[in-house]
Design a protein around this nucleic acid. Structure first.
Lengths: 370, 370
DNA sequence: GCCGCAGTTGAATCGCGCC
DNA sequence: TGGCGCGATTCAACTGCGG
């Protein structure tokens, strides 16, 4: 801990959870005293009725009072006020992370820019296990967006390029991060065994943020502390934290959690690493990418059957419609069929297995596990 | 081309590129005449000096005059004006796609919401081959963001759920799409052999958008047409397009490109459809036709409940009377139940789902529609 | 202890047409 | 135009139990 931090510590309520409204409390703290802010504000989801899964079970929606706003205008006023208070607290070279979904993140991003923050990246948290779209009316909402911004255009912000590169197996870290949502033992439960907080963030996400954009000893503030994921990871990684949370139930869970956290917990470093098999390539992608055209004919490897490619990546042959696997199986009268090795196409009079196209796509993907 | 489209064609400049300012031109077109808008507006990149690669070669940045705006305020005014004109053009059930990067997309998204559009999804285009961050000062900017929004909250927007699911090998399409940037033969060159447009989008992106959110024959408008990717894919897929582009050089490249594009043949454009589109068959018809007899017993799929068929096509089981759906729901204590997939009957000692009888009727209907 | 299977769950702006 | 009723719709993980 260097001298500056030690002095600040006499004023700053380090490693504590403050009880109350984040705007009031931030306005009461000394200006230019914080290195990084992580903020997970209410998303302002505008949910109407209940939603049921196809098996008729009810989805436990986020319908808490703290997520309700009367209008975009009210939400914007709130956002601009807490962002203003947050910006005042940041040191000149400080930075902020904000997370949101399409319901609120565009308003949040515009408010950040208007407040004088300088956006450095937007980062996509691609969820490996999102909730599906049960009604089939939209795309699976499989990601959330984070915005990383410096206090101002000329801030000398912290970016640990090499550390993130190392986390990413030697390849420069990209703006899309694949991480699982918070489940299992990490997900905190209340006394009834229900989830303690409806939107607890995974520690892996905060781990990457704090490793990449803070140094040991830095002061990290979270104005929407919830169950304290930011504090837990900060403590593990040797950063100082300040939490603000107005709901007593969340504060209690967070206090208990933080007591049991130890610095340099090695196991937490392993959270983000996971092995992955070869990435799945949908056949439809060959069509979208023009490697095969709708209307083009495929030939079975044994030369016995033909089928035509359709615009949605299905085949039609002998009146059978379906995936490359389904049509292959139907034509052969087999229970199953690997379409990738069954079909080929013609180029310059030669038969070429479609699997070669898949290999080409995989080579381009250079997929990283995380 | 059906009657409605033919009439509209007398007013709408279909399959043309209009020369001029998109706001003026959109205001001159008839209201509620367009099914889908795809817009790739200027990104308002705020680039300072030149950028060089580690080998000192200069990066060819987007520094065209059309991408320069004096301030966020000016950019917002511009965005809100073209969005207003665009919204007027959309049919009540129409929708819009907008693409942007962190420089502009937050402002665009907020403007969309303020204009009354209803966001359906934000979609991340994850680039398989992005430009690296040469200076190591930020994360590799490896994605762009698309916003899909309906004209209003109660628009009955087009979503070809099954077609997108087919494109994704039978798994529901997610909000993150991995696609390569536009390179190689697809990337259009000018007479000097330089790229004809700095931000040409890949056809694969438009293919997915048009397959997923339009039907054949729909009118698709692109107010920032550029080199005409939207038009090219629309033509291939049998959609009508309207392009607007004020730069003569881009219009020329696009005209040439569109002339050489051919529509895919009819059958390959057919796409996997949802059950919802199939004709409704009342359960009573199975009784009328003698496929099931009054008094016959049905068994629930899980084997737990029985019910008796009545002459009017209702069921009675455990003192509950009503439709196959109502009785199923009541017995299971569920909010709803699809009776077609819930009940089966016995034939030769085997359980047969009643849905097979419905499929039989539907098959006959295709042969003799009336 | 390991494997398989059944059950549960996650920041969700999640019908439509007829009368 | 509001109410009612048909009937369509899910993926990846993790938990716990039984063999």
């Amino acid at each position: 801990m260097n001298k500056v931090i030690r002095e600040a510590a006499t004023i700053l309520p380090l490693n504590q959870i403050l009880d109350g409204d984040c705007i009031d409390l931030m306005n009461g703290l000394p200006a230019e005293s914080v290195d990084l802010i992580f903020a997970d504000p209410p998303y302002n989801l505008q949910l109407k009725g209940d939603l049921h899964r196809p098996d008729n079970s009810r989805v436990d929606a986020v319908d808490d009072h703290w997520d309700q706003f009367a209008s975009f205008q009210v939400y914007d006023d709130f956002s601009r006020e807490w962002l203003k208070a947050a910006r005042r607290l940041l040191k000149p070279n400080g930075a902020i992370w904000v997370i949101g979904s399409y319901h609120n993140v565009f308003r949040l991003g515009a408010a950040l820019q208007d407040a004088g923050f300088w956006i450095l990246n937007d980062v996509v948290w691609r969820k490996s296990n999102p909730m599906p779209n049960f009604r089939g009316k939209r795309l699976t909402n499989a990601h959330e967006t984070l915005i990383w911004a410096a206090k101002s255009e000329d801030s000398k912000y912290t970016f640990n390029y090499e550390a993130l590169k190392a986390l990413n197996e030697g390849i420069q870290m990209r703006s899309d991060w694949v991480l699982p949502i918070c489940t299992g033992h990490e997900r905190l439960k209340d006394d009834n065994g229900d989830k303690a907080h409806p939107t607890q963030k995974p520690e892996s996400l905060l781990h990457r943020i704090l490793i990449g954009t803070t140094n040991a000893g830095d002061v990290v503030l979270d104005p929407f502390f919830g169950t304290g994921t930011t504090g837990a990871v900060a403590k593990k990684l040797g950063r100082e934290y300040i939490g603000i949370e107005r709901e007593a139930a969340y504060r209690e869970v967070a206090e208990k959690r933080l007591k049991s956290v130890r610095k340099f917990d090695r196991s937490s470093l392993e959270v983000t690493t996971s092995k992955r098999a070869e990435p799945r390539v949908p056949f439809g992608q060959l069509v979208e990418r023009g490697m095969l055209s709708p209307g083009e004919e495929l030939l079975s490897m044994n030369g016995r059957y033909r089928a035509k490619v359709r615009a949605d990546g299905t085949l039609i042959g002998n009146d059978v419609k379906g995936s490359i696997h389904q049509v292959g199986a139907a034509l052969e009268g087999a229970p199953s069929c690997n379409g990738w090795t069954y079909w080929c196409y013609k180029r310059d009079g030669k038969r070429v297995p479609i699997d070669l196209l898949r290999q080409q796509i995989r080579a381009e993907m250079v997929e990283r596990p995380n």
